[in-house]
Design a binder for these strands. Structure first.
Lengths: 96, 96
DNA sequence: TAATAATTATATTAAAAGCTTAAATGCATA
DNA sequence: TATGCATTTAAGCTTTTAATATAATTATTA
């Protein structure tokens, strides 16, 4: 277990450890969503969602595609998909 | 996905997201260790290790047993064991 | 050009995270 | 009981950075 692996993993965990960002990641498990979609489910402002998305983007966790003046976000890193699924299985028994 | 489940999970992630604490959890995967053992592997002071252990204890992630004037720490929560194993599998390919 | 979606820039506030140092506790043994 | 070792706790300090609000800006469409 190398120290730089530890460091890399803790950065990822840290970026996932904010309630809003974790919720965003859960929402993006099975679909892509626009910033506005996310803002509706996570109750906050557009700018705030955008700022949180930037943090996740800078970690390479999520990506986006542009369509008209909408930005659709999705999880790029398959490892993150699996990690979140494991977490839901472990910590959210009923899985909803 | 309930909001309080999200909150609970983000607290756990946050407590795991410090390099020293994550390293401690990795070290405790397959064995129990005293505070001094941990201090040797994570290079810092006794007091600092103790403080990090307290954070993990307060989340119910680790537990300890006392033997003479040594305190042996171990991971109590089996979910944490599985979560870390998943993370190592995903993010540390060579798995060492 | 007007309207909508999203980003960026800026600032502010708070807080809180992390570490160091030193003192205190607990246990064992001489 | 006195000493030494392992650990914890307390206090303080520094820094930083985290999170959000607000307002301005970009980009796209119509």
């Amino acid at each position: 277990m190398k120290d730089d692996q530890i460091d890399a993993m803790s950065k990822i965990l840290k970026s996932m450890s904010h309630p809003i960002r974790l919720k965003i990641l859960c929402l993006l498990q099975d679909k892509e969503l626009s910033v506005g979609d996310i803002r509706d489910q996570v109750e906050t402002t557009n700018a705030n969602v955008s700022q949180h998305l930037n943090i996740l983007r800078s970690q390479g966790i999520i990506d986006y595609r542009k369509d008209a003046n909408f930005i659709y976000n999705r999880i790029t890193d398959k490892r993150i998909l699996e990690l979140i699924q494991t977490m839901r299985k472990l910590f959210c028994p009923t899985f909803d």
